[in-house]
């Protein structure tokens, strides 16, 4: 898991689960009910270190709920979540983040009233000393192509720049696992290609595991190591992008006739 980028820490602690794999994340019987509705129905999910997994499924399949359970914004009704070998099920969000889970929301949610540099300071001051702020800010802004926006108020950035800044802020936390909810929604073709390249780099060079919720199947094909299809709150299929694309059942529930 060597890296070409010294700004980001690599080599997350390995969890040898006994079967020879190194799982960064695992859920067992994860379940979430809202009143009478079962949004997540006994999901057993596993993610390898450095893997880029795309999570797809029709609207209401439970994708965002699943991510929110992983971040701790929602409490599961039943089941456990293991991160890096430890049970994190009951932990509040901020403690999960301390352990290396990072999340990028569906809507770009940078701090619109703060400058780009101030935005980055919020995650940075959690993990580096004050005298390193400026250097780290420069490195991250350079990597995410925002160097000339240092003093720009984040609300004035373009949609694509906000997405990049937000991924930069997530990376500033030096995570081992990053969760992204529709990172390219509303972006142009070029911006989407930029983000795809960035996400692949983060998985390949930084060794960060990623779960990406995405609707755009072409984007999924560009970036995914493996794909999980959720339907009705349970895992419907799991496999390589080719397996998923050619699966007639998946086509029927999700991909539509033109795929």
């Amino acid at each position: 898991m060597a890296t070409s980028d010294p700004t980001v820490k690599t080599t997350p602690a390995v969890d040898e689960t006994g079967d020879g794999s190194s799982r960064i994340l695992q859920t067992r019987g994860l379940r979430k009910e809202f009143g009478g509705l079962t949004a997540i129905d006994d999901v057993d999910f596993a993610l390898e270190q450095g893997e880029l997994r795309c999570l797809i499924g029709p609207n209401g399949a439970g994708k965002s709920t699943f991510l929110n359970l992983l971040t701790g914004q929602l409490e599961p009704t039943a089941g456990e979540i293991y991160y890096d070998g430890t049970d994190i099920t009951g932990l509040p969000s901020h403690e999960r983040v301390d352990r290396g889970i990072s999340m990028k929301f569906q809507v770009p949610s940078v701090y619109e009233g703060l400058t780009v540099a101030q935005n980055l300071r919020i995650p940075l001051q959690q993990i580096v000393e004050p005298d390193a702020f400026e250097d780290r800010t420069r490195e991250i802004l350079g990597r995410f192509d925002l160097l000339d926006q240092w003093e720009t108020v984040a609300g004035a950035l373009s949609h694509g720049q906000q997405q990049r800044l937000e991924i930069g802020m997530a990376m500033a936390m030096e995570p081992n696992l990053m969760l992204l909810d529709e990172p390219v929604a509303g972006l142009s073709v070029e911006e989407t290609a930029d983000i795809a390249e960035l996400l692949r780099e983060i998985a390949d060079d930084d060794g960060v595991a990623l779960i990406v919720i995405e609707h755009d199947i072409d984007f999924v094909e560009t970036i995914a190591d493996r794909v999980t299809v959720l339907d009705g709150g349970s895992i419907f299929r799991e496999g390589s992008i080719e397996e998923i694309r050619t699966d007639p059942e998946v086509k029927r529930i999700y991909l539509g006739e033109d795929h």
């Binding site: 914004q73 901020h94 949610s109 009233g113 919020i122």
Partner: peptide, 14 residues
């Protein structure tokens, strides 16, 4: 940061 966006800030470990 908490004033600007509480949920977001919690996701940075605060």
């Amino acid at each position: 940061a908490t004033r600007e966006d509480e949920d977001r800030t919690a996701m940075f470990g605060y």
